[in-house]
Amino acid sequence: MAPTSVGFWGVPTSTLDWCEENYVVTSYIAEFWNTVSNLAFIIPPFLGMIQAIQDKLEIRFIIAYFSLLAVGIGSWFFHMTLLYEMQLFDELPMIWGSCIFLYCLIEAYSPPKSHNYKLGSALVLYSMLVTLVYLEVKSPVFFQACYGMLVVLLAGRGLYLLM
């Protein structure tokens, strides 16, 4: 069967369409290889979450694994369908998950079972604001800027912890 740009999920509605040709391998998966590669973001975090629960680690670590799992599942559905709603299911967990990881890195040397409510509240507020603005603006550049800022903060904090 000849490749088509419209498959099982209909015409793509996402604001982004990656470099992979759509519906080449199967009419049920828009970007086959981008979809399948997300197993690397689904299986290891799932296993890590189970191990963290078994090891009775703090809830922040379990939530961190869960956030990676959410990104993997969201990305799976986005690349499978190329629908705007699934794009949100991919991108918004990246914002929320990065805030969770930033919390974990900032609190890396805090006493066990302690909670930094000010930091947690600030990161939740940031995630909520980005979510609400992105739902209204629908600009990939806005998302990329907000996510990029979190990545820079994560990298900076990680480097600081290594020194």
Rank of each mutant, 00 (worst) to 15 (best):
39 L>E: 02
39 L>D: 01
41 F>C: 02
42 I>N: 12
42 I>K: 13
42 I>Q: 12
43 I>Q: 08
43 I>G: 07
43 I>W: 06
43 I>C: 07
45 P>T: 01
45 P>W: 01
47 L>Q: 05
49 M>D: 05
50 I>P: 04
52 A>S: 11
54 Q>R: 12
54 Q>G: 00
54 Q>D: 03
54 Q>T: 02
54 Q>F: 00
55 D>H: 09
55 D>K: 12
55 D>A: 06
57 L>C: 10
58 E>A: 09
60 R>D: 05
60 R>A: 05
60 R>H: 08
61 F>Y: 15
62 I>G: 14
62 I>S: 12
63 I>L: 13
67 S>P: 03
67 S>I: 01
68 L>T: 01
70 A>E: 03
71 V>S: 03
71 V>R: 07
71 V>D: 00
71 V>L: 08
72 G>W: 00
72 G>A: 01
73 I>Q: 06
75 S>V: 02
75 S>A: 11
76 W>H: 02
77 F>W: 12
77 F>M: 11
78 F>T: 01
78 F>M: 04
79 H>S: 07
79 H>V: 08
79 H>A: 08
80 M>W: 14
80 M>Q: 12
81 T>N: 04
82 L>Y: 07
84 Y>C: 03
85 E>V: 10
85 E>R: 15
86 M>W: 03
86 M>S: 09
87 Q>V: 01
87 Q>D: 07
87 Q>R: 11
87 Q>S: 03
88 L>P: 11
88 L>D: 13
88 L>H: 14
89 F>W: 12
89 F>I: 10
90 D>C: 06
92 L>H: 06
94 M>K: 14
95 I>E: 09
95 I>W: 04
96 W>H: 14
96 W>Q: 13
98 S>E: 10
99 C>K: 12
99 C>V: 13
103 Y>L: 04
105 L>Y: 12
106 I>L: 04
107 E>R: 15
107 E>Y: 11
109 Y>L: 03
109 Y>Q: 07
111 P>S: 13
111 P>A: 13
112 P>N: 15
114 S>E: 15
114 S>F: 11
114 S>C: 13
117 Y>M: 14
117 Y>K: 15
119 L>N: 00
120 G>I: 05
121 S>M: 14
